[in-house]
Each structure stands twice: as structure tokens, then as C-alpha cells.
Design a binder for these strands. Structure first.
Lengths: 332, 332
DNA sequence: TTTTAATATGTTAACGATAACAGATAACGT
DNA sequence: ACGTTATCTGTTATCGTTAACATATTAAAA
């Protein structure tokens, strides 16, 4: 069926080894021979059998990438940036969408191990640390958007508590004292880190944490809508709401408007992530910019750089957040 | 380094062939033997070497997927749906982001051929028909969102002219006669098909096509902004605008508002695609729903089903569009 | 000229899995 | 009881490529 190196060798009148050398640009090939081989290669439209090559070299140029949700523009940007860098450096991305599901994350990890991926890039907030540490012993690994207390694991992350702190401080500095908090899943580290930042900011400015002002759900718009319903039914509703991500903020804004309220007049709303829609929505959303493109790029670069060295201790990157002030917040 | 089938065989006290049989659930294995092998498999945490397996079976469970832009939620949804179906059916997706670039599309196609993908899913509006036809002879292929006049090529598409026609008819039926058209790249089939639908609708309702009311650019928000600038400077600006996609519509709306105009009072705006943001923007966008999730699902299912049969002639799926009327259009 | 090094190519053995074939034992039908 | 079939396991060849080693030629150095 397929053209093999043998066919090329016969066509060019040389041994398969010579063909292999030409393909891999090895030294000591006579110019004439090289040209004859190249001509045969082209004539037969030869494509090397990657399986055979990988089998003998024990390497692959596949990188496994697991994200919670590609259809979320947030991760879309990250995947795009990663894929670009990977391609530039000669690697291909095998994609896994875990749908935010722990089992799926673990399944993909297993599948990627079996598929002989050269390395794995994980945006997997839910898998246990222990599993990751075991995995790291077996296959090169980068953790994206997740900090883990293990110097042997390459990681790219952002201080989420700090980001949340900036957002909440911004609200407080604009006179808000009753600040609602829309929280993500309790078992996701970045979720409670954002909560910690929220509480810390309240504390620093002498505001008591009121559990009534918290609504917990998923990182989706629907949760924001539900949070609105809860907050509006309160005896003393909040004047501002810090959402754990932009999708939640959208949901909140949408529900508020449908109920006849105006943003930011009735509620100041802050999000987290700064996905593409945040600047387009009405009103444009004040949010914490999450450097997801840089994350993707850094992840692949760090990973590929770490492949050679053994000093992964230095292979950590703490990226900076930025508070983007738009139109969804106002001075009380 | 890695555990091979040989190690497992030794551990279980059987031949490698017996281990292979257990792994692949072949018949005629004594229960006791099967259990011993399974125990050894588990104890050693064995992972088959996929390269070796692929080499001998001449199959892979990789599917190459090329999309123009994963960070675009439109394609994000498509990729997500495809990936899910692929996973359920035991395949993995290798991702390529062509950035809407012809060379990149071709590069990925080549890379996927070499990587021994079992099949290729292409969302590649720009590659030439001829290349696709050649490719189809060599490797199973599905064309997504692209109609090609070749019964041997599996394809999933949507009548874009019809969709555009619905959108423009909706505007005409609401009393608009001067309808602007924001067009995508001229060399992209779906781009001029949408134009054809636009013109056809005008014709059917006795409106002359006026080149002045057309602005041509890329499928991005910026083009919508530029279109606004052009249209507003016209002696007689349009009262409604049909954008070739939602992103353009966003840009148009954004620019219009920044210039102090109101939608739909000053301009009725229609988009195309119905991406996630369309329902969230203010005003919610009237648009033509593009069934991208169904497309992704159908593509993989059709592809995988076609792998067995040779009657690809029937392997075409024409999906239906739907006009979603929201708040960005009004009766004149 | 002879030795040594550089250049150029070929031969053989792996890599880790499955296919194809074959051998052995147990079960069955007549 | 005997051949036949079903069940179970093992041996060998093979997939397409590169690594390691070997050989042959040419050029440079002595």
C-alpha cells in the first residue's frame, strides 16, 4: 500500500540506510547520491512511517494537552497559543477535553501515557496532587494554571487570591461594603483561592465576611443567574458583586437586566478572566485579566526547555494579573 | 525503561502471545491464565506501546482535525463536539489551528498524513478542491462546512446562500430597502455564497444591488467596525446591515454605539453563526444559527461510519440553518 | 609510497507489538 | 475406542525505521 523507505531505496539505487540518512540530514552523503535520493523521495511522494520511527527512537513529537472546556474562549486562546508554539518547535498536540470532570482528566492522562506522548500539558484543576506527582516521574509534565508544592513539577500559574483581592479592593475603594461573591466549585483550588482573596480584602478593610452574600456553583453563566436570584431576595442585597469568572458575571448581568435592574447603577459587577466577550458586553465588564495566551506559550516553552535539563526546580513561572476597569462598576 | 509485553509474560509465566491475547480480548484463554496475566498487567502497570502496535496492525486511532481558529467559540464548539464523539468511539484528536491560512492548512494535511492519522477532518475553507480530491484517495477524509462537487468525499455542510437569504428576507419583510452587506474574504466559498444569498433575496423582492452598500474584509470584528465607518459616510446610509458573521456584527454594533447611534433604532443588524456571545450582547443579535455542534458530531460519525463502507456517495449531510430573531432588528 | 584519517555507503540487529501457523490437550460424537 | 473438533498456548516472521557496526573508497599526511 504505502511507499516505504525500501521502495525509495530501490528507486534511487541505494541502500535503505542511505535513504534514511538523507531523510534525517546525516553527514557524509555524496551530493549526487543525496540528489538522486531526494528525487526518488519526491517522485514516490514518500512519507515516513512515524510509528516505525518512534518505535526505534523511543521518542514521539506528540504532546498531550488536557483542558476543561475548549469551547470556552478562555481555554480556546490557551490551546491556540500552545498549539502554535508546539508546531513551531516541531510538535503536535493531541487534545483532550475533560469537561471539568476528574475521571475524564485521569482517563486522558492514562490515554496519553499509552499513546506515547512525549509530554503532557495539563490544565486540570481537579486531579489529585499525588497522581500528578506519580505521573511526573514517568513522563514530562507541565501544570498550567495550577500551583503545586513540588519543585520537580514544571508549572505555570497565577496568584488567584491576589487577583481576587485586586478586584474586591477596587469595589471597596469605590465605597461598596456589601459585596456579593459568586463562587466556583468548592473542590477547585483556584475557586477557593479566589474566595480567600475576597475574604482577605474584606478583612483588610474592616468588613465582616457575611456567608449570606455568597453563592456557590459552577464556572458557568447559569450560576451567575442563580446568584442574582438569591441576592435579590435578600433583605439587604449587595451593592456590588464579585464573580469568580466572567461567564458568571455575564449570567448575573443578564439576569439582573431581565429583572429590570441596571448595571452598574443598581449593582457594580466584577468578573475574572477577561475573556473576549467581556469587552463587548454591555456594559463592558470590569474584570481581572487572566494571561491565558501567555500561559499557553510559557507552558509549551517551559516544557520543551525542561525536556533537556534536569533542573526543573527553576521551571516555574508566576504570571501577573491585571485589573481591567471598564463600565460595570461605579462609585457608590 | 518502559514495561513491555515481555516483562508481563515473564511475570505471569506465559508467552508474550498469551499476554497479547488477554490484552486484546481474544478467544480461547483459560480463565486461570487470563487472571494471572491480568494480575501481572496490573502489578507492572503495563501500557502497550502504541507505535509497535500501529506498526504491525497498520492502523491508528488518531484523527487529525484542522480548524481555522480554535479560539473562536464557533470552532471551539465544533472541536469539543468532535472530540467527544471521537473519544466515545475510541479515537484521539490531533489538533491543528490553521489561522485561516492556506499554507498552514496544507502543512497540517501533510503532517497528518505522515503522522499516520487514521483519518482527517478538515474545516479548511481555503485549500483547493484538487488537493482535497488527491488527499481523499490516500486517506479517509471528511470536509466540514464545505461543499465540494465530488461524490467520493464525505462532507457535512450547510447551504450558506439559503441562510443569508433568510436573513436578508427578514430585513426586507421588515420594510428595509437599503441593506448594507459586510462581506468576508472573497476567496472563501462560504463568503461569496452568503453574498449570493444576499443578492438573490434583493432580486426576489425587486431591490437593485448597490455595490456602494457592500464592504469587504475579514471575518473579524474589526471589519464590522470599518464597514460602519464606510456606511455612515455614505450620502444615503443603509437602514439595515447584514453581516457575514456575528463577529463582524459585533464590530459594527460596537462602532455604531461609540459613534452615538442606537441599535436597532438607527440600524437593524443581522449576523450569521449565532455564536455564544450573540445572545448576550446588547441588543441581543438577530442571526442565522449555524449548527456547529451538530456539524462536529455528524462529521465524526459520518467519518467513522464511512471507514468501513465504500459507498461514500451517500455520506453527505446537509444541515439546516435557523433564523434566530432577537433584538437587533426592527420594523422600519 | 605507505599510513592514517575522512568520507561515503552497506549489512545486520534491534524496537515492541500482532498475525499466521503450529502443537498440545481436552471434549465430543459415533 | 478412535477420529474429529474445540480449546488453549507457544514459536516464528513481520511491520518500517534507525542504531551500531562494518566496509570500501578517497584524500591527506608522513
Amino acid at each position: 500500500m504505502g511507499i516505504t523507505i525500501k521502495d525509495v531505496a530501490k528507486e534511487a539505487g541505494v541502500s535503505i540506510m542511505t535513504v534514511s540518512r538523507v531523510i534525517n540530514n546525516k553527514d557524509y552523503i555524496a551530493d549526487g547520491t543525496r540528489e538522486r535520493v531526494r528525487a526518488a523521495l519526491k517522485k514516490l511522494n514518500y512519507m515516513p512511517n512515524i510509528s516505525a520511527r518512534n518505535l526505534v527512537t523511543k521518542k514521539t513529537d506528540f504532546l498531550g494537552l488536557v483542558v476543561p472546556d475548549i469551547s470556552n474562549p478562555f481555554f480556546g486562546e490557551l490551546v491556540k497559543a500552545s498549539e502554535k508554539i508546539a508546531k513551531d518547535r516541531g510538535y503536535s498536540i493531541i487534545l483532550g477535553d475533560s469537561d471539568g470532570n476528574v475521571e475524564a482528566e485521569a482517563d486522558y492522562i492514562d490515554a496519553f501515557r499509552g499513546r506515547m506522548c512525549g509530554a503532557i500539558i495539563l490544565v486540570a484543576p481537579r486531579v489529585e496532587d499525588k497522581i500528578l506527582q506519580e505521573l511526573n516521574r514517568e513522563i514530562p509534565l507541565v501544570l498550567v494554571d495550577r500551583k503545586i508544592d513540588d519543585d520537580d513539577i514544571v508549572q505555570v500559574y497565577l496568584d488567584n487570591a491576589q487577583g481576587a483581592y485586586s478586584a474586591v479592593r477596587h469595589l471597596i475603594e469605590h465605597g461598596h461594603r456589601r459585596i456579593g461573591f459568586v463562587m466556583g466549585p468548592a473542590n477547585v483550588p483556584n475557586s477557593y483561592r479566589r474566595k480567600n482573596g475576597y475574604i482577605e480584602a474584606l478583612n483588610d478593610f474592616g468588613i465582616d465576611y457575611d456567608p449570606e452574600l455568597e453563592y456557590q456553583g459552577e464556572f458557568i453563566a447559569e450560576t451567575g443567574r442563580q446568584a442574582f436570584s438569591k441576592f435579590i431576595s435578600l433583605k439587604e442585597p449587595p451593592t456590588a458583586v464579585f464573580n469568580s469568572n466572567d461567564m458568571m458575571a455575564f449570567g448575573f448581568v443578564q439576569a439582573a437586566r431581565e429583572a429590570g435592574y441596571s448595571i452598574p447603577d443598581d449593582f457594580s459587577v466584577v468578573g475574572f478572566d477577561d475573556i473576549f466577550l467581556s469587552s463587548l458586553m454591555e456594559p463592558a465588564l470590569t474584570t481581572v485579566r487572566y494571561p491565558f495566551i501567555e500561559m499557553g506559550k510559557e507552558a509549551i516553552n517551559l516544557l520543551l526547555d525542561s525536556l533537556g535539563t534536569s533542573e526543573k526546580g527553576k521551571m516555574k513561572k508566576n504570571l501577573e494579573h491585571e485589573l481591567i476597569i471598564r463600565k460595570s462598576t461605579r462609585r457608590l
